[in-house]
């Protein structure tokens, strides 16, 4: 088997939240626990979940914008977390990030041209003329006019700013882009423009994406594989149509059912899922989802379910699937390794 472009293994990150007088009380938040997945070259991988589930932290940990506590992130086999500052700089050319908020992601005091040339100049990529040519190309690629280079961010709309943010991510010609809610702040019609743009880039450059989103529709449209996260852990992973059409984990099912569909005949099953997302400060014992789960069993309260590979490309962490579905072999084989 060929090495995937990105291989994330057992990634964990805890934050210490300080509260009370002078930060006297402190509590540990397990933002990301034991997260593993891999992304092939040219693949769009989705990370989906509700706020506070750790999907953004995971994305930033991949780029080492936050330092993970443990685990490994391999980019074409090279360990990102072990890289020294010089190696890290070189690695960062190969993976980039696109942000949610197009108003916060561009420096208001710098022209678009400055924003786009700076990365190339810093990495010493060619002469001034070559850099200018590259900026011209990348602007054209994201559908912006060349004269945008002389303007400041406030002269553009949200959708245009998001295009510029994508251009900045592209200018170093990365192999992987982490896109953190890239269309959530945009209007519906602009969302579609950006998604079509990203899809085109993915196909033209064989770019890999880690798309982080709370919107199942966006993930279904853009990704081929998806992981569902709940309170810092991946609860289910698999190919996109299967996960959304036949979800295994009760949480995935609840998320799917609660997602509004623009079709009045397919009324969402409203309010079925009781209760609220528990605080990451004190996640429930056992399976974190058990207080809200309609299928809760005794074991769920005490033991976190282990990962079960129910099919070669599909896995779930839920006691409902103790030995997997028709794939006892892989489940039984797993502990042996």
């Amino acid at each position: 088997m060929t090495t995937p472009l990105l291989d994330v293994r057992n990634l964990s990150k805890t934050f210490v939240a300080r509260r009370g007088f002078m930060g006297g009380e402190s509590a540990v938040v397990h933002a990301v626990s034991d997260v593993s997945f891999s992304v092939a070259a040219g693949e769009a991988f989705g990370l989906v979940g509700e706020s506070g589930c750790g999907k953004s932290t995971t994305g930033r940990a991949i780029l080492r914008l936050v330092e993970p506590d443990s685990g490994a992130v391999l980019l074409k086999g090279e360990d990102v977390l072990a890289a020294n500052p010089r190696r890290l700089r070189a690695l960062r050319r190969r993976m980039q990030i696109v942000f949610q908020d197009p108003y916060s992601s561009l420096n208001p005091r710098r022209t678009i041209g400055q924003t786009l040339t700076e990365p190339m100049a810093v990495h010493g990529l060619g002469s001034a003329r070559k850099i200018l040519e590259a900026v011209r190309m990348v602007l054209a690629e994201v559908g912006m006019p060349i004269d945008a280079a002389n303007k400041y961010p406030h002269e553009f709309s949200g959708g245009q700013r998001q295009r510029i943010g994508i251009a900045r991510a592209l200018v170093l010609r990365p192999e992987l882009i982490v896109a953190d809610e890239p269309v959530s702040a945009l209007d519906v019609s602009i969302q579609a423009q950006i998604l079509v743009l990203l899809r085109g880039l993915q196909q033209r450059h064989n770019l890999s994406f880690v798309l982080i989103s709370h919107d199942l529709g966006v993930v279904r449209h853009f990704c081929s594989t998806v992981s569902v996260m709940y309170l810092g852990r991946i609860v289910e992973r698999g190919p996109v149509p299967a996960i959304f059409d036949e979800p295994l984990h009760p949480y995935t099912r609840a998320l799917r059912n609660a997602s509004p569909v623009p079709d009045p005949k397919a009324k969402v099953i409203m309010g079925k899922l009781e209760g609220e997302v528990a605080s990451a400060l004190s996640p429930p014992s056992g399976c974190h989802f058990h207080p809200r789960c309609p299928h809760v069993m005794e074991i769920c309260r005490g033991v976190y379910p282990s990962w079960v590979q129910v099919a070669p490309d599909r896995g779930v962490a839920c006691h409902l699937y103790p030995a997997g579905i028709g794939s006892t072999v892989s489940a039984a084989a797993a502990p042996g390794r």
Binding site: V188, S189, A192, D215, V218, H221, F244, S259, V261, P262
Partner: peptide, 14 residues
């Protein structure tokens, strides 16, 4: 122009 969760990725028409 809405990406839908109940349908496979058709072509979005922005």
């Amino acid at each position: 122009s809405i990406p839908r969760v109940d349908r496979d990725a058709g072509d979005l028409k922005p």
